[in-house]
Design a protein around this nucleic acid. Structure first.
Length: 571
RNA sequence: GAGGGUGUAGCUCAGUCGGUAGAGCAACGGCCUUUUAAGCCGUGGGUCCAGGGUUCGAGUCCCUGCACCCUCACCA
């Protein structure tokens, strides 16, 4: 048995603490002889020092071990939290450079190029005088090799490295006897000591709640999670690039709005103190982007964070990102073309495929996508003519009675009942990308009417895997019809309508807005589809979570204490 | 809001009929200069989500609460 082991003294500490729980963190270290492992002095300092005291679950054994190493490293005159470490080469690029070279097994390129690299230690295989680290940077993993001979005085620090530490190294390429590409380290620097242990080295962090609350741990321990967010960035970059090629201008419009509009949803409410003014977080940027059209910005887009005070589900987050764009002198057919270009193009360029698996389904993004009329799909899947209101109400009543349809048709206007049945029967049938055209006009107060039929609006929605991904109009630019649509209240379940009167917006139309096509695409849902993520929380870095209660320690990313209770009223 | 599920070591998970709290990884001590989830020997580590109840005895059974996940509703 190892004489320097810690079996006995900590046991005594625990036992005395168990008898006197209140004194647990103040208990003096048990009397022992001289120690060489450096652990007890640390515990003594932590438990008796004048600084903040740590309870047992705020400071577990492994964290104490790591703090002991921290002190040892400082004792060697080394800053455990580094500083600037310039000129690093991403692991991906180092691998690419190595692919150009002939490196034999067991060889080190003594006269080869010197690389700087940095990342987090995710695996460690230590021998007596040799350490292999698997280090992860944003682009991937690479093995670093440290030998006592090569790093000289740095060896003392190297022996104190833990999983999770962030290191920067200088070295030359080689291959080990087993052929693994290895950066043989001649000098290294500790850039950040990890004081908390990382998750299990193979499985990473799998607990979904922990993954959302501590996304930073999810990101460095789960390459799959990092892949999703890097691809999200690439998809958005691709969209920006394509729109720029088509001469669209990126603009920013108000998130704080005195009148909310452009969609049907409950808004978040806030207040401006100096102006003593009620403001809403936008549910849509639509009415402001159209004002840009009036102003002569002929092709505009915004990647727009929107906020809707509604339920949370695998497809809904209270804040989400919408692409919205408007093209003067266009119509909704132009918007279909843009949809196909952006989405099929992103699949091809970012994912590298035209067929992308989502859950159990292979979704085919090959263009062109089917264009189906709303009324035709209704007849096909519901089995009724869209004009046969009596039969439609009868069907809705039957479904409602059977508990298959929540909505009560007797409380709804005709077009809303029609749409309830459309959603019930049709939407989840639309698996591969499908444009649904020509909606009932009553559902579309911001849309131009069909020239041959005023009951039909020049609108489409894009459905993929039963989800609404896009929504586009030939935009209504007749101010008188717009004013009339704002004035008409459509009776729905919650008595909500997107047609909240916005007098300034109508006035803008009176100055003259060019005919235009407008399009909205749900970016989060698009990223879900293309990355194969079945929950919207898996494509939003920090999804909204209820704060952990009774947890005053900074452990779980709790919300800061509310300064003042905000208004709760809902318009 | 309704229904279902989950909550045990830093992480991933077992825990039988109610009878002393378990494993792997991680950690600590030891050996080791070519590993790939390194290996071998040894050791420590628990608010069993929280609170109540039943019981001689509760991780386990009952009640209440909390958090998260799923389905439904809401989201035209």
């Amino acid at each position: 048995m190892a004489a320097g082991g810690r079996a006995t003294p900590p046991r005594l500490l625990e036992e005395s603490a168990a008898r006197k729980p209140a004194a647990r963190s103040l208990a003096p270290p048990p009397p022992t002889g001289p120690r060489s492992d450096g652990r007890c002095p640390v515990r003594a300092r932590l438990s008796t020092g004048g600084r903040r005291l740590y309870s047992s679950h705020a400071m577990n054994e492994q964290m104490q071990d790591r703090r002991a190493k921290l002190d040892k490293i400082r004792g060697l005159g080394v800053d455990p939290f580094g500083g600037r470490f310039p000129d690093t080469t991403p692991h991906e690029d180092i691998r690419a450079a190595a692919a150009e070279l002939e490196i034999e097994e067991g060889q080190i390129l003594e006269d080869g190029e010197v690389f700087h690299a940095a990342g987090r230690v995710v695996l460690c295989r230590a021998f007596g005088n040799l350490i292999f680290l698997t280090v992860r940077d944003q682009t991937g993993d690479l093995q670093y090799g440290l030998s006592k001979k090569m790093v000289a005085e740095g060896w003392k620090v190297a022996k104190l490295l833990d999983l999770g530490d962030i290191v920067g190294v200088t070295g030359r390429l080689g291959r080990t006897k087993t052929g693994e590409l290895t950066l043989w380290v001649s000098a290294f620097r500790l850039l950040a000591k990890a004081l908390r242990p990382p998750p299990e080295k193979r499985l990473g962090l799998t607990d979904v709640e922990a993954r959302y609350r501590r996304r930073y741990v999810d990101l460095f321990s789960n390459p799959e999670s990092r892949r999703v967010f890097l691809q999200r960035a690439q998809i958005i970059a691709y969209i920006r690039q394509k729109l720029r090629e088509r001469r669209f201008v990126e603009v920013e419009t108000p998130i704080l709005q005195p009148i909310y509009g452009g969609a049907a949803a409950r808004p978040f409410l806030t207040h401006h103190n100096t102006l003593d003014m009620r403001l809403y977080l936008r549910i849509s940027p639509e009415l402001y982007l159209k004002r840009c059209l009036v102003g002569g910005l002929e092709r505009v887009f915004e990647l727009s964070r929107c906020f809707r005070n509604e339920g949370i589900s695998p497809r809904h987050n209270p804040e989400f990102t919408m692409l919205e764009l408007y093209q003067a002198c266009g119509d909704y057919h132009d918007m279909m073309d843009i949809c196909e270009t952006l989405i099929a193009g992103a699949a091809r360029e970012v994912i590298g495929a035209t067929v992308v698996r989502f859950g159990e389904t292979d979704i085919d993004y090959t263009t062109p996508w089917p264009r189906r009329k709303y009324a035709d799909l209704f007849r096909e899947h519901v089995g009724l003519d869209i004009g046969d209101i009596a039969a439609i109400r009868e069907r809705a009543r039957t479904l409602h009675a059977a508990g298959d349809l929540k909505a009560d048709e007797s409380r709804l206007d005709d077009p809303v009942v029609v749409n309830e049945l459309f959603e019930h029967y049709v939407e989840d049938k639309l698996v591969h990308p499908t444009f649904v055209l020509d909606y009932p006009a009553a559902l579309c107060p911001l849309t131009k009417r069909h020239p041959d039929d005023p009951h039909v609006a020049l609108r489409f929605e894009l459905f993929i895997n039963g989800m609404e991904i896009g929504n586009a109009y030939s935009e209504l630019n007749d101010p008188d019809i717009q004013r009339e649509n704002f004035s008409r209240q459509l009776r729905g379940e919650e008595n909500e309508t997107m047609a909240v009167m916005d007098e300034d917006f109508v006035q803008a139309l009176e100055y003259g807005m060019p005919p235009a096509g407008g399009l909205g695409i749900g970016i989060d849902r698009l990223v879900m589809l293309l990355t194969g993520s079945t929950s919207i929380r898996d494509v939003i870095l920090f999804p909204l979570q209820r704060p952990r209660q009774g947890n005053a320690s900074a452990d779980e990313g709790t919300a800061p204490a509310a300064a003042a209770e905000p208004e709760r009223e809902t318009p």
